[in-house]
Simulated assay, not measured.
Amino acid sequence: MTAGLPEPVRHGDLRVSHDEREAVVERLNTAAAEGRIDLGELDVRLELALNARTYADLAPLTADLPPDVPLNQEPLVLKGGMHGESRTGRWEVPGRITVYGGMGSVKLDFTQTDCRLPEIQIEAQGQMGGITIIIPDGWAAETSRMDSGLGGFTNKTTPQRLPRTPLVRLTGSGGTGGVVIRHPNSWERRKQRRLQER
């Protein structure tokens, strides 16, 4: 070894990033939803993943799991057109959704869905009508790749994410109509409680 040069570092000793920890957390949540690991083991592995410092810490947590299958199904495509479009109530949530606000706007309401996916990818193009996305309390949104456009982008969600809930990855542009992602407002919460009481 040449004098003055640092010793080579083994791959397992390299430090992991926040994104790499999050990817393992997502894979573990998926494995639990598939019945590959039980909830007790999930909690243990999640704790280890969140505190992992190196690849050697992280690798064993998914070593006995098959590779995660990428989202390859056709995305749900919604277009506001002239008269608007919405998805509310109980509906089947796919892993990928593409939304165009059009002239009439689009509303996506996930609050009554029974979604067990670890992640939902939404491409939102606000266009003229704009887009409103409503996610339940406990769901979190990752919006760093959203462009505000002329109409703006507003994220009114809280960063706290409950275990075994989807992470919404939002990309796209606010266009001229704007894009808003939020949790239910007080009127929507009252409406949901009335529906649950029936």
Rank of each mutant, 00 (worst) to 15 (best):
E22H: 05
P184W: 01
A32L: 08
F110C: 02
E7W: 03
M82P: 00
V180P: 09
P163C: 06
E7D: 12
S86K: 13
M128Y: 05
L170Q: 12
V93S: 07
L170C: 09
G12P: 04
T158D: 12
E47A: 13
K79M: 04
R116S: 11
E47H: 11
L65C: 04
T132D: 12
I97L: 08
I135C: 01
A33Q: 14
G177W: 06
L39C: 01
E74S: 08
T176N: 12
A140I: 03
R189L: 15
A56N: 13
G102I: 04
R145C: 10
N155E: 06
T62S: 10
L71P: 00
G172C: 07
R27N: 01
T132I: 07
R198W: 09
S105I: 02
F153R: 08
Q112L: 15
G89T: 07
E197L: 14
P8M: 03
W139R: 00
G101V: 10
V99M: 02
A56F: 05
P159H: 07
T143V: 15
T88K: 15
L117E: 09
Y100F: 14
L50P: 03
H11M: 11
R21A: 03
T30W: 11
G126M: 02
T62V: 15
R21L: 03
E34P: 00
R161C: 02
G102H: 07
T154N: 00
A23F: 05
G138D: 05
L46P: 03
G129S: 04
K191P: 00
I97P: 09
Y100T: 01
G89A: 05
R10N: 07
D109T: 02
W187E: 13
I97Q: 07
V106K: 05
R161E: 07
Q112R: 15
R90Q: 12
A49D: 14
F110G: 01
E142S: 13
D38N: 13
H183A: 07
A56Q: 14
V99F: 01
E188L: 13
R53W: 09
P8H: 04
G151R: 11
S173D: 15
H18D: 14
G151K: 10
I135K: 00
D137G: 06
L28Y: 05
R36D: 03
V179I: 15
I134M: 01
R21V: 02
S144E: 12
R15H: 12
A32S: 13
A31M: 06
G138R: 04
S144L: 04
T2I: 05
Q73Y: 01
R45A: 07
S148D: 12
P75D: 04
H83D: 09
R182A: 14
T154P: 00
G175M: 09
L39E: 15
E85W: 08
